Simulated assay, not measured.
Amino acid sequence: MSLVTTLKDAQKDAMRNKDKERLGTIRMVLAAVKQREIDERIELDDEQVIAILTKMVKQRRDSQSQFEQADRPELAAKEASEIKVIEAFMPQPLSEEEVSSLIANAIESTSASGMQDMGKVMAELKPTLTGRADMGKVSGLVRTYLNK
């Protein structure tokens, strides 16, 4: 079953259960997916939907930290609840050991020898790690591996 279908089923369940917060967040996700489909005139696959979910979580984390700094706990709590709902539809995150193992394998398979090969390594990792690890942290790890 595709991720969009799962989201639509979750939307129906939230309507039946009268869970307004969950319903609002799921509608927001489906609207973002639909907007991208219309803008690009394509039907999104699960990988592209996961990329949208990842972006939405990142945006909410940024907003949450800004609300906490501005002493607005009620708005920070709303962002946190939206993050929780969105993350329920994302794949399980990988552990640091698994990420390190995948980086080592990618470096070996691309025969990377230095920083000039970072693009090749990241291109190898991206399909596997999208939505399952913070790509910013992965980039930093790849950089340290290649500088050894």
Rank of each mutant, 00 (worst) to 15 (best):
P91Q: 05
G131R: 10
Q64H: 03
K20P: 05
K126H: 13
E21N: 15
K78T: 10
M122L: 11
D45N: 14
V138T: 03
R61Y: 00
E98P: 05
A80C: 04
S111H: 14
K120H: 14
K137W: 08
S95H: 00
Y145H: 14
K20C: 00
A14Q: 09
S81P: 01
K12T: 15
A77G: 13
M56Q: 14
K18V: 11
A77K: 08
E98W: 09
S109Q: 13
D45H: 03
T5S: 14
I38K: 10
K126F: 08
N105R: 13
L3F: 07
L53E: 05
M28H: 15
E79I: 04
T5G: 05
E79V: 04
L75T: 01
V142M: 06
E87D: 05
L23F: 14
G136M: 08
T25K: 12
R41S: 13
I103F: 09
I52M: 07
D19S: 13
L23R: 12
M122Y: 07
S113V: 10
G24Y: 13
E79W: 03
A133H: 03
E37W: 05
E97I: 03
M90A: 08
D39F: 00
A106E: 06
L3Y: 02
Q64L: 12
F89A: 08
L30I: 05
G24H: 04
V4L: 01
Q66H: 11
S113L: 11
E124Y: 15
Q66S: 10
D71H: 01
Q59E: 13
E43P: 12
T5V: 00
A70S: 07
L102A: 02
E82C: 04
M28G: 02
K126S: 04
M135C: 09
M1F: 14
S65M: 06
L146C: 10
R60L: 14
M28K: 15
E40L: 12
F67I: 01
G131W: 15
T6I: 09
S95P: 02
P127A: 06
L3N: 07
K148H: 09
V99C: 11
P91S: 07
A80D: 13
P91M: 01
N17H: 13
E87H: 04
S139D: 06
L146F: 07
A32D: 14
G24L: 13
I50E: 11
V138F: 04
Q35W: 11
M115N: 03
A77H: 03
I86E: 15
E43G: 00
L94M: 09
P91Y: 03
D46L: 09
A51V: 07
A133N: 07
T144Q: 04
L30C: 09
A123S: 15
A14G: 12
T25W: 14
M1D: 09
A70I: 02
P91D: 06
K12F: 13
R60M: 11
M118K: 12
E98L: 00
V121D: 07
E40Y: 14
E108I: 00
L125A: 03
P73G: 06
A31E: 15
E87I: 02
A133Y: 01
P91A: 01
K18N: 10
P91W: 00
A32S: 04
T25R: 15
Y145A: 14
A31D: 14
R72N: 15
T144G: 08
L23W: 05
R27L: 10
G131C: 09
L44Q: 05
M122Q: 02
Q92E: 01
